[in-house]
Design a protein around this nucleic acid. Structure first.
Lengths: 213, 213
DNA sequence: CCAGTTCGCTACATTCGATGCATCAATACA
DNA sequence: TGTATTGATGCATCGAATGTAGCGAACTGG
């Protein structure tokens, strides 16, 4: 995976991962609020200061890989086909993010832990929303840049916000219901279909067209 | 207004109002982040501790009178017409909430300030959105109850999440752009149109049908 | 009018998240 | 090897938020 990295960067990644692991274990045991950053750092055998050198804030340790997903979406937009309309691009970007979260967060149970913790900690919940907003903003901005004459900034924001909002709400509902990872994935796809079905001109992959209500 | 209150409670209300006024003035001058609770308390001539006796957190001084009117949306759903489909009901509920949130703004300048500050402070953004998220859950549940055979829980969550997400994102985008209140309101309606246009069967009020892309 | 109680407020101490700064030591590089 | 880069550290500090003890003004019943 990371064979060509220098020793220094490998060490850095190792402490970062140690912090993540320590935090996850502690959060699972004691919940979010009852774990201090000092505890996490101590468990990872680094200083408290080092924690904030790797993560902007306490809750960011739970979103270690979330930034990767934004990059994925941005790349899909950047590498779009010349004749591709924005509904298809947005659809592909969304599906790419879903696929990524499938073999990342969802499989490892990190997403479920996040939801569980957020449900019991309003502070964390607010920060999660903040993060989602920032992500939406970036994607919407990129989409507007890509289709400046078809999407004004407001329309792009509404479009992206609608998709992300629908997928998030469906995912949360499925997770709250205790669905299996497959069930969660199905909920995600259902949400995408619901929002996008009326807007796409042609499909980029095999999908049941009749599921559009 | 409060003639039959005891002297003690009147005093309490007075200090509370002094804290709100001081906070509003300071926020207007210096923005949200650059004002400390100690400053607010000092300007209101009370101790810092007293501030937290009246408000759970710094942001709550801005939400002093703001109760999210979830009831409005729920009532629209409850009092739906027998032949009304869920797209129309949801549309009406959303419009009702938009109209109300804006009326509240005009009534007390506090809400207007809140919106303005939220544009520049991610913390406040998240707090506002948190309130919307709580409403989202209830509305989705009510919508599912109202149309049990047309909307499963996941579908209802996705639908409502999509609408709220689109409206929120468009609103924030308009605010970030520095739009006038009228422009913000237009962005809200644009977002509703974008998400709902393909789903409504008949309109409940005067609206440009051709705006549906 | 007076004791006893309630309660809003204060001062002080403390915890915790987060940041700035100077510094050390290991790595990378010429 | 010598130098520069950089991850990690300790320390100081700020601001939000909470616990505690206690004062004094406002209510209560007699």
């Amino acid at each position: 995976m990371n064979e060509s990295l220098g020793l220094r960067e490998r060490k850095k990644l190792r402490t970062r991962q140690a912090l993540i692991d320590a935090a996850v274990h502690l959060f699972e045991d004691k919940g979010y609020e009852d774990v201090t950053v000092a505890e996490i750092a101590e468990a990872a055998e680094v200083s408290t200061r080092t924690f904030f050198l790797h993560f902007q804030a306490k809750e960011d340790v739970l979103f270690a890989d979330a930034d990767v997903r934004i990059d994925l979406a941005l790349r899909v937009i950047a590498e779009r086909g010349p004749a591709e309309g924005y509904p298809d691009v947005l659809l592909r970007a969304t599906e790419r993010m879903i696929a990524n979260s499938w073999d990342g967060d969802l499989a490892s149970g990190l997403a479920a832990l996040r939801v569980r913790l957020a449900a019991s900690s309003p502070v964390l919940q607010a920060r999660v929303l903040q993060r989602y907003l920032a992500a939406q903003d970036e994607v919407a901005g990129a989409l507007h840049e890509a289709y400046p004459d078809q999407l004004d900034p407001i329309g792009a924001a509404a479009l992206v916000g609608g998709v992300i909002g629908a997928v998030s709400a469906a995912t949360l509902a499925a997770l709250a219901r205790g669905d299996s990872p497959e069930g969660v994935r199905r909920a995600m796809r259902q949400a995408v279909d619901l929002v996008m079905c009326c807007r796409r001109q042609h499909m980029s992959g095999p999908r049941d067209e009749s599921s559009c209500t």
